[in-house]
Design a protein around this nucleic acid. Sequence first.
RNA 1: GGGUCGUUAGCUCAGUUGGCAGAGCAGCUGACUCUUAAUCAGCGGGCCGAAGGUUCGAGUCCUUCACGACCCA
Length: 496
Amino acid sequence: MIGDENELIEHRLGKLNALRAMGLDPFAIERYDRTDMAGEILADSEGYGEKEVSIAGRIVSLRPMGKAAFAHVVDSSGRIQIYIKSDTVGPDVYKLIELMDIGDIVGVRGTVGKTRTGETTVFVSGFQILAKSLRPLPFGKQKGEQEWYGLEDVDTRYRQRYADLIVNPEVMEVMQKRSLIIRAIRQFLDAEGFIEVETPVLQAVAGGAAARPFTTHFNALDHDFHLRISLELYLKRLIVGGFEKVYEMSRVFRNEGLSTRHNPEFTLMELYQAYTDLEGMMDLVERLFGHICQTLYGGLTLTFQGQTIDFTPPWPRIPLLEGIEKYSGVKPEEFATVESAKSAGERLGLPMEKENSIGGIVDKIHEKFLQPKLIQPTFITEFPVDISPLAKKDPANPSMTRRFEPYIVGQECGNAFSEINDPLDQRDRFVQQAKMRASGDDEAHPMDEDFLRALEYGMPPTGGLGVGIDRMVMLFTDAPSIRDVILFPQMKPETK
RNA sequence: GGGUCGUUAGCUCAGUUGGCAGAGCAGCUGACUCUUAAUCAGCGGGCCGAAGGUUCGAGUCCUUCACGACCCA
């Protein structure tokens, strides 16, 4: 979009043309061999002696002073000062300083030393501009006493994440941590003997969660497909097929709104383990979160938004209705019928007009009264059957299921259950869901005959777990918004 | 979906009861061979988110729209 060029861009184009006229077209350069990274030099500034180093990176500050100049160069390892003196590089090379801008990519040769004030600096013997920055970086805020900030406008930050990354280095740090977390999850699961698989993103029936899917048309098959909303039903097909410990960590898509905790495409990790149950999954969750915390912070505690969170097992296990009674006063018996549950909800001041299922009301009261109290890691267990169409019923109380959700800092961090492996029960649940769908609940679970056929071949007793990776990364990076942990969050397209 | 707030220079923001469009930073010109996002002197830079309306006159008031933030559903 260099059509909207202004004076600033005009000047930089002029400098580019001057470089080209001198036979120094930066964009003709294909390669620059580096001997060292900025971070390595800063870490061992005494160890370089007279050795010549070559570094490359982006100019982020420039202080020319007549016939000498200071600048800072940033590469992926850090930021180092360079000092260029006309006497050293010769007047012809020094002239290039006039054609250099903050934002340019440069290659620098020189020796390592310290300036009078003690800052480790590369004393330049030669340099070249490797790429010209034509568009000024969104630097330049002064606030109070000489404090500097980069880009703040969140709209621009998300739409131009490339500029955000240059100007706000903490974004890069969060994304590096995200990579460490994902690696730690894979290490943990590999060590536990899990096999990572890939299942279809395009699905004729999008099930495994209560959410609206995105729909797309498959031209060759002349059929509408959905983008998956979960990984569950294909992974359980694999358990039927003989995999005993299997997982997938990948993107799923839900056609819903955006918020500080929701992005319509997000990363989900689901795992399934044959011959174990809910309690086996709780044990695994405790160890998984503990492993990640150890890897990142060397212990079992971290700070999130000022609160200290302790992952030391065992985490408390609280049945959902017990927790609701404790924090809202509503007794479990009140959830016996939709009518009594509704009046309990109304008593608490919650809008109940649209509610027509016990599970929905339980969920709403939970969200408002119990969930915000669950700061330290806690397992909430025993969810109503009508909002848990894939979880085994509790033999002691068939209106509830053998399901749990872990909560940390008031946020749901996962979902797990003893999986239904009775194809007859599963069919009944799907039929129930179909009725809910028919009465207007478009997030009710769709019928999936192929999945039922798989269960009919026989699936071992199985424990399953799903964890939203983006929310997990928020927790481990102290990020208040999901957009802080997603490089390119979903936005409405620009209209210009 | 509802409410509140926001959108002015590259960035961050002022702009009074409606009366010439402002600041800091960065940019440009000049000076300066150890600076700390230097310093000194000078100079440019605007479709005030878009469209309509009220008015002699709108950045400012009204309406609609677009995009965003926060809260609620």
